[in-house]
């Protein structure tokens, strides 16, 4: 993975976020900000993966960046932070790990063969990754709002 690939992935993460924004019927004025938030999260995640971070911590960092950047964006675009944060983190959801977990679980219902142990390890590994990535995404989005300890973004001073 080189820089061009990372930029391209971030670009497509942004489009993924916009697609989900349109599916969730966000106001038109927020779409560009959603693209930026999604691309930022994707950029950070794939960059950290390149630097050798685990998928869980990389996803958490991406989600945290989205959560934090959604607060000033909410201020300037006049919409609640979740409107920006939820579509933007969806491209970070580990679809392939979830898929592998499901396949592994199905294989585990079959007969016990010589590779049964290997399937168990793979499935548990993929399942744990899926679970913890999804948890870290939700945390990364939810925590910045609570760290501010304000009732609403309108009360947060940005300067």
């Amino acid at each position: 993975m080189d820089w061009i690939t990372i930029l391209a992935k971030a670009f497509w993460c942004g489009w993924g976020a916009v697609g989900f924004g349109i599916l969730f019927n966000v106001p038109l004025r927020t779409l560009f900000a959603i693209w930026i938030c999604g691309a930022l999260g994707g950029f950070l995640k794939f960059n950290l993966l390149l630097l050798g971070a685990g998928v869980v911590s990389a996803s958490f960092a991406g989600a945290l960046a989205i959560g934090i950047s959604s607060i000033p964006t909410a201020h300037f675009r006049h919409a609640p932070p979740m409107v920006f944060a939820i579509p933007s983190v969806i491209p970070l959801i580990p679809g392939v790990f979830a898929y592998r977990t499901m396949l592994g679980l199905i294989k585990l219902t079959g007969a016990i063969g010589p590779d049964y142990q290997a399937i168990i390890s793979d499935t548990v590994n993929n399942g744990a990754k899926t679970l913890f990535v999804i948890m870290s995404l939700a945390m990364g989005v939810a925590v910045p709002m609570h760290l501010m300890r304000k009732e609403s973004v309108k009360n947060i001073r940005l300067r």
């Binding site: 391209a8 497509w12 489009w15 993924g16 916009v18 697609g19 989900f20 794939f46 491209p91």
Partner: peptide, 13 residues
Amino acid sequence: FVSLAGSGFCFSF
């Protein structure tokens, strides 16, 4: 746009 998002996911994976 949702289909575009689908191909975007595909690329990022």
